[in-house]
Design a protein around this nucleic acid. Structure first.
Lengths: 235, 235
DNA sequence: AAAAGAGATCAAAAAATCATCAAAGACGGA
DNA sequence: TCCGTCTTTGATGATTTTTTGATCTCTTTT
């Protein structure tokens, strides 16, 4: 557990003894602890210099912790663990659905807390993978994410919003197969996961704009029965 | 909560009443439930057609659930929630550190379980593919689960969906004999367990694509009267 | 050595899945 | 509101995959 070195953790807790206990415990494990004793402070701390994980006590003096959770989730996926004295099932459900990643009922064991923090950090770390630069280059394709421009072997092609997002998603995952379901969920939203036909139409449109010979695709490959993939190996 | 439509969930639980309870509860919420009553079944079920989330009871008859968790984490990040009667802190820590995403102590409320499933799915959805880039290598066979690519001594072979799932299932259980029944259930679904002929046809197709000399198989071995097995020892 | 059971293989029919064009519907800006 | 653009839906033919049927091989048993 010494690998917490330097990880910023925000502790939102109004009772001083509890706050101190958490702080010293966490500091001993080499976290960098930021304290907040109410929502106002928590908001400031979370925004000014976002921590890598948040521990949130419900029942704060100046507002509802669930509101804070919902607010946070509008702009961030920072892992958040709720610590609460309330152990009723409906409290847990409410907190988890508000966007919390875990819920611990007081009193809890330190070891369990630490284990759950590790889990939350694991999730956080898993999401950061895609550190892609501003321009993607795959074979003859050149994709400028800042200017939202697409060049195919040097010449500019104009794409509609959906075409662009579709191409971007595939380029971002070049080489790996994306299922129809994944693509639809990502590009159209979770309610469209069954509209495979729409996806097919757009693949045809994209190919017409991007492939030299749309009937013999070299970049946008179909994986029969599964989905699509962008080729990433070029000799 | 009706947006669970079609989401595959694997329930690993040896006690029948509990298993039935979970199944009906989840089915009512439009999950597609896959059941396993021991680790052997769980391993098989998790491979050929991976579920989107797993519920795992510890204390199964044929092995330690934590070993299963660790095994799973070698090739996949499928969300996994442990359900256990053991409520001691050290049990929780052990499970979470083995790779579980959450830990519920029995008895638990259905609503809490559902809320925690939603959280787990949220995490799963957040990270694109869900699969760790881990390649399986068995003799001349090289199997990349992320790219969904199969190489046989260096050259790429293209497989149809069923061929791929079949090969994947065998590869994941290399060295172990799988009965016709098990294979059919996992690759084709529970309604096909008697269609042995179909399985034979596909084994022939696979061998033709994967074996140097299909009539003298070195990788995909027949276990007369029982099923098939992938060879796992190579000099 | 014949018969029976289990397995392999080839060819076809049947069923899914895909690509494409065209038309209808939705949306946004003049 | 009208028009042009973008998105969705419908219909059709082509392609690929899966299933089924028939035949042949191998092994074991009697």
């Amino acid at each position: 557990m010494s690998d917490a070195k330097g990880i910023r953790i925000l502790v939102v807790e109004d009772e001083r003894p509890m706050r101190r206990f958490l702080s010293t415990t966490l500091a001993a494990r080499e976290f960098v602890v930021v304290e907040a004793e109410n929502l106002r402070e928590a908001r400031i701390a979370a925004t000014a210099h976002p921590p890598e994980i948040i521990l949130l006590d419900l029942g704060l003096p100046d507002g509802d912790g669930l509101d804070f959770t919902r607010e946070l989730r509008e702009w961030s996926r920072i892992p958040l663990i709720v610590l609460s004295a309330r152990g009723r099932e409906e409290d847990k459900v409410a907190a988890l659905d508000a966007g919390a990643d875990d819920y611990l009922t007081k009193p809890f064991g330190v070891n369990e807390l630490m284990a759950r923090i590790r889990v939350a950090l694991r999730h956080g770390a898993a999401q950061e993978g895609g550190n892609v630069s501003e321009v993607l280059e795959i074979g003859p394709l050149r994709l400028d994410r800042v200017r939202r421009e697409v060049l195919i072997s040097g010449t500019l092609v104009t794409l509609t919003p959906i075409e662009y997002r579709l191409l971007l998603l595939l380029a971002h995952n070049a080489g790996r197969v994306l299922t129809h379901r994944q693509i639809l969920k990502e590009v159209w939203g979770p309610n469209y996961v069954h509209q495979i036909h729409t996806l097919r139409v757009f693949m045809a449109l994209l190919r017409r704009k991007v492939e030299p010979d749309p009937s013999r695709p070299r970049l946008l490959l179909t994986e029969m029965g599964v989905g699509y993939r962008m080729r990433d190996l070029w000799e």
